[in-house]
Design a protein around this nucleic acid. Structure first.
Lengths: 197, 197
DNA sequence: CGTCGAATTGATGTCATTCAACTACAGTGG
DNA sequence: CCACTGTAGTTGAATGACATCAATTCGACG
């Protein structure tokens, strides 16, 4: 059980299979039905949530009552609100299963424990943190400058696998445009590509 | 000399004045004229740049040759490209003095050194990192949902001091709109506030 | 005083939103 | 098995927000 998480830790820590196996004994594993919530705005984020199987989405609800999707998390991805987890403050995020999912809830203590045992794991965590910053930075850049079409193109190039699993209106929400606009962008791209071939 | 940096380290480390004084002996201090660059896109960011006095801006140049301002850094603020510094990869950022400035160039080694001596300083650094993430996250949210006017309002509420020192077209760039649009937003706000009083 | 960049203003254009109608399809209950 | 319902996606027409282009004003500074 939990082959994905097992693998994940193994890759980033160089710990033995048996030891990892032991660690995972007390990991909190939960199954979520499509539509169930792992975190709601106002709550404090207490875990890093590892998607063992399935698919999660993280989103906020802006002033205009519109959802803004922050992240999708398929297998082996981790969802959390770092600010909320670190500062112990209420989160603005909703984290929701959009497929039936098996999720491992990792506490900060759990992660710290592995970090203490395996410096390599700690390093990997630090890298993940900085990768996250890089990714946020790139997103800010994109949102500052790019048109709907450009955003969509980088999305499909960056997350081709998600295209098949995520409904279109959620992708629109991730891109910061309306579903209608995305539909038109796709149409436009389709006819352009057709003309070109 | 360097009273701001001295204070900064003192607050976050509990080290003695004399020891801090000693540390700062080998700090690289540089003066930049208005318009000079501390970092250019393509270079690897080698320092965290502490603004002892003056004002810096960090920006990227998008595909459309338009500047997108990432951050302003007045006294006691730090400018860097964390991804570039951490991963040793070329940066997308330009960092430029927009006032004559005195800047301290802090290497990762320097910061690590203090962190090793003072756990409190290390903690403060970690907090800064997470604050940074929170701030980026909020910016993404804002860009996903808010209108030009809303963005401007949160800007003046968040950075009232900068209003006086930063030219308007740079604020526009920070908000992701044109200078003309910002001018109209301001006009609109002025007339609205006038009517209300 | 003349010059140059910043800021404002007006006219017009473009991209994306909004609102509404319609199709397609999956799930539900009779 | 078929009508009923709800959600996703598409399409069209009108609107809105911001951009673009061009002209003018304003203010700082040599």
């Amino acid at each position: 059980m939990l082959p994905n998480l097992h693998n994940y830790i193994k890759e980033k820590s160089d710990l033995s299979d048996s030891y990892i196996h032991q660690l995972l004994q007390d990991a909190k594993v939960k199954k979520f039905q499509k539509g169930e919530f792992l975190l709601k705005a106002g709550e404090v984020c207490m875990h890093a949530m590892f998607t063992e199987s399935g698919l999660l989405r993280t989103y906020t609800i802006g002033d205009t009552a519109k959802e803004h999707i922050i992240q999708f998390a398929p297998e082996t991805w981790i969802s959390l609100d770092r600010a909320s987890l670190y500062f112990n403050e209420p989160s603005d995020f909703y984290i929701e299963a959009i497929e039936n999912s098996e999720v491992v809830l990792l506490t900060s203590d759990f992660i710290l424990k592995i970090s203490r045992i395996s410096p390599k794991f700690q390093l990997a965590n630090d890298r993940a943190l900085h990768t996250h910053i890089r990714q946020l930075q790139q997103r800010v850049n994109q949102l500052l400058g790019a048109t709907a079409e450009e955003r969509y193109l980088t999305f499909i190039q960056k997350y081709p696998d998600l295209l098949l699993r995520v409904p279109q209106w959620m992708i629109a929400s991730y891109l910061g445009i309306t579903p209608e606009s995305l539909s038109r962008v796709r149409k436009e791209l389709a006819t352009r590509n057709f003309k070109m071939t």
